[in-house]
Nucleic acid binder design. Structure first.
Lengths: 207, 207
DNA sequence: CTTGACAAGTCAACAGTGTTTACTTATACC
DNA sequence: GGTATAAGTAAACACTGTTGACTTGTCAAG
């Protein structure tokens, strides 16, 4: 069915798969460098050298293009695989290193569009399947999903704040200290029993 | 200068301030109930019964309209005023109660558009002046802004996750337990010294 | 090789967005 | 009453995502 090679010929042959992939590659490149909302369908098409209508033909809508792009990459590559021991620290290190270095561009594409209502379902699936799900499975125990959701909140929140205010405040802390701190924060999220409150909370008046 | 009353007359007189306020009221109502991106300039204008061009005349752009709307409301009403003692718990309670009950609609408008690049400057100002700033002032100590930014990350992150996945996972915990947990998480953010890591972090290899 | 079918690709339009410009009109002062 | 000035308006601009009708390349059957 498929042509064996579509190689480098100038006026390339009609090849569904190759065209699809070409669109996907352009979308990933542009989304990750400029963000979802910034890049128009027509620009993706032009970058890929194909017609605009093909985006909707192959991916339903622009939304579907992002969904396919982010489905390709793991949220926590090689982190949950390490097991429960030291998980908070590994998450913290991952977060800090991609926070301070700009890190995985895909995360940026997601943070760019975190609140976009058009992408709610895309983000919902991503959050559940790639973050809360794996995390909950690793930590186990009661209310695992709630604890995982809390950790995911911290991870997304830090990324969001970094994107909004340029990490100016966060960079007051040097990376190592920030990792320490985030590790303890994430530990508090994932812990099975809610620990007695830290030194700053002596005034708890609840019954 | 201004007309003393523009009252209820049908074809109302030309009154700059009244028109401005009318637009602002419509924007607040629509933004908070449907979100920034959902509501078009033309719809706001129609709801206010004014011409579309007046939005840009009075607020520069749609962005300016949101900026003015969110400038009207405090981020943590009556929370930082309570001082350092019990601050994490008050923040946690505020967050949970507005999370579970839908809470202040303005926060929703913000979460709706958290990642919108067009609103970056608006969110930046809001984050710095209404969240990190007051928080840092209350907690004091070294790297106060960094610690405050961390707490703000948690607060924004939880709101974001709630909005994305409908709080399904977070609601595994009953509200009181969630408050406990969040209070300890926020305490970990605000603490002056990064505490020794909790029970799950025995594998720390730094130092 | 010719024919025909079907999928791949194209074009132009639609309805919508935020924004701007030129314009009309009502008001307030002289 | 006349007029400057501001308030309000209408129409357009350039752009967005999306759709349906159309053309064209390719492959299989006759």
């Amino acid at each position: 069915m498929e042509r064996p090679e579509d190689g480098g010929c100038a006026g390339r042959a009609r090849d569904r798969e190759a065209t699809r992939q070409r669109i996907l590659d352009s979308a990933r490149e542009l989304f990750t460098s400029e963000g979802y909302a910034q890049v128009s369908s027509r620009r993706i098409a032009a970058h890929a050298g194909v017609n605009v209508a093909l985006i909707n033909r192959y991916f339903g809508a622009k939304r579907g293009l992002l969904a396919e792009v982010i489905a390709e990459e793991a949220a926590f590559p090689g982190i949950v695989e390490g097991g429960r021991e030291g998980l908070p620290r590994r998450l913290a290190e991952h977060l800090v290193h991609r926070t301070l270095a700009g890190g995985t561009p895909l995360a940026r594409a997601l943070e760019h569009s975190a609140g976009d209502p058009d992408l709610k379902s895309v983000h919902e699936e991503r959050l559940k399947n790639a973050m809360i799900g794996p995390l909950a499975e690793v930590i186990g125990g009661p209310e695992a999903r709630a604890r995982a959701a809390l950790a995911a909140s911290v991870i997304l929140g830090v990324g969001l704040v970094r994107r909004i205010e340029g990490a100016a405040a966060l960079q007051e802390l040097d990376p190592d200290r920030l990792v320490d701190r985030l590790a303890s924060v994430i530990s508090a999220c994932l812990a099975e029993s809610a620990p007695g409150q830290a030194h700053s909370g002596s005034g708890r008046g609840r019954g």
